[in-house]
Simulated scan of single mutants.
Amino acid sequence: MHSEFERSIEQTQLVAAWQQTLPTTLDPSDRATVMADEAIPQGLRIHIDAAGHQAYSFDFECAYVDHHEVQVKLVDVEKDGRHIDERTEVIQELTQNYIRHIHECAQALQNLTH
């Protein structure tokens, strides 16, 4: 059975809203791509290319817990196209920063998801 939230917004509309809003919460030189998570009806896959010369890219799973709260999980971190250890202090700091920005985006979209 679908929850009220799942009926309230189509995933394609959710993806479009996130694709438009997420870049406003990130550093202007970061690039983000938001796609539907085919396995989760209200889930998103977020890919962020970090600004700067490090050439880091981050992949996150993002799923709505309810109308306004999202759960975010780091899936992968790459540097120059190669998987790297995400346990380093630098990567942990960047990851937490991006997760905070993803939560900010969810907050900004509450009028759409509520």
Rank of each mutant, 00 (worst) to 15 (best):
S3D: 06
F5Q: 10
E6V: 10
R7H: 11
S8F: 04
I9N: 00
I9K: 01
E10A: 14
Q11H: 02
Q11D: 06
Q13A: 15
Q13C: 02
Q13M: 08
L14G: 04
V15A: 05
A16H: 04
A17S: 11
A17D: 06
Q20V: 03
Q20D: 14
T21S: 12
L22G: 06
T24S: 14
T25V: 09
T25D: 05
L26P: 02
L26R: 02
L26N: 01
D27R: 11
P28K: 12
P28I: 02
P28N: 10
S29C: 02
A32M: 02
V34W: 04
V34G: 07
M35W: 04
A36T: 03
I40M: 08
P41F: 05
P41N: 02
G43P: 04
L44S: 04
L44D: 01
L44K: 08
R45S: 09
R45E: 13
I46G: 02
I48T: 01
A50Q: 13
A51I: 03
G52F: 06
H53F: 11
F60Y: 15
F60K: 01
C62K: 05
A63S: 15
A63Q: 14
Y64M: 13
Y64Q: 01
V65N: 08
D66M: 06
E69M: 07
V70A: 09
V70N: 04
Q71M: 09
Q71L: 11
V72H: 05
K73T: 15
K73I: 09
K73R: 14
V75K: 09
E78Q: 15
K79Y: 00
K79D: 00
D80S: 14
H83M: 05
H83P: 11
D85H: 07
E86F: 11
R87M: 08
T88H: 06
T88L: 06
E89Q: 10
E89M: 08
V90F: 11
V90Q: 13
I91D: 02
Q92E: 12
Q92Y: 02
Q92V: 09
E93I: 09
L94A: 07
L94C: 03
N97F: 10
I99P: 01
E104W: 04
E104I: 00
C105Y: 01
C105E: 01
A106G: 09
A106P: 06
Q107F: 05
L112F: 10
L112M: 12
T113Q: 07
